[in-house]
Nucleic acid binder design. Structure first.
Lengths: 140, 140
DNA sequence: TTCCATAGGGATAATTTTATCCCATACAGT
DNA sequence: ACTGTATGGGATAAAATTATCCCTATGGAA
């Protein structure tokens, strides 16, 4: 594993949370898992912009941090399913809030962020999938 | 400014939010500013673990993103005060939630994170300052 | 037999983020 | 004359995060 060289700042709740949620795809993956997209291959397909490698690495980290649990079915080809732990679920309000905030302020944000060179759309579709599933999650 | 080479993923609210909040000290600084710690020098003193450079850079980014506003008083020695914009304020529920989540799960988290080499305490005091001020913010 | 899907992980490059160090302004105090 | 305070930013090094590429295993389909 990677050997951190700079001490972590754990003095403040914010930093602890950051340690857990820090990762380009972590919040999005947690959200996906919360919506029953739990197999690695499904998750991978959900984020065309991500590398398989990063996703598996970040899933491992989330598991190591006790946010998700991995269930491996002794089959071939292999089948794996991740699910949120209790603590993992307790993060969802925050993640949902972040998602809503970003969506609510999209036009403003796209505008102020646009000075950053290239803004790419990685998968408009993902949003839609999320939107649909969010409804299901509330119903189900 | 820095030239990003990898396109941003702005398809999902989560990524937009991440773009704004991503920075080791950004959430903490926003929280500080929300509690009336608004001068750069004060903020710097609040985070002994941070470099002056990073803080000013991240403050600039936050300003560029429209999350905070900078007011420069034409004095000498210079006096500067940052304050949250309306959008900046709208982030506080999220930041507070992150902070609470981290604190609420502190023992668990410190435990699962401890496999990461050295965990340093940067400033126990900061938490206390925050705690006291949080009360004031609710009252005031 | 060759190709696809599933899942995992090593090695290494590229990119992004932080850390270090140094320089500048201008006033106040010792 | 120094030293300290306040604020800002350039240049460059170090560290952390992501991206690329490649290899493993096995069963089923074309």
């Amino acid at each position: 594993m990677y050997e951190r060289k700079t001490p972590l700042a754990v003095d403040c709740g914010l930093h602890l949370t950051r340690e857990v949620l820090n990762g380009k795809w972590k919040p999005a993956m947690l959200r996906a898992i919360s919506m029953n997209i739990k197999r690695p291959s499904e998750i991978l397909r959900l984020f065309p912009g991500a590398t398989r490698r990063v996703l598996t690495v970040q899933l491992n980290e989330l598991e190591g941090h006790g946010i998700i649990i991995k269930k491996t079915y002794p089959q071939l080809p292999p089948k794996v399913e991740y699910s949120l732990t209790e603590i993992g679920w307790s993060l969802m309000p925050i993640i949902d809030a972040m998602n809503q905030w970003g969506d609510a302020n999209r036009s403003f944000l796209e505008n102020v962020i646009k000075d950053a060179p290239k803004i790419g759309e990685i998968s408009k579709s993902t949003c839609q999938i999320y939107a649909n599933m969010a409804v299901e999650r509330k119903i189900g």
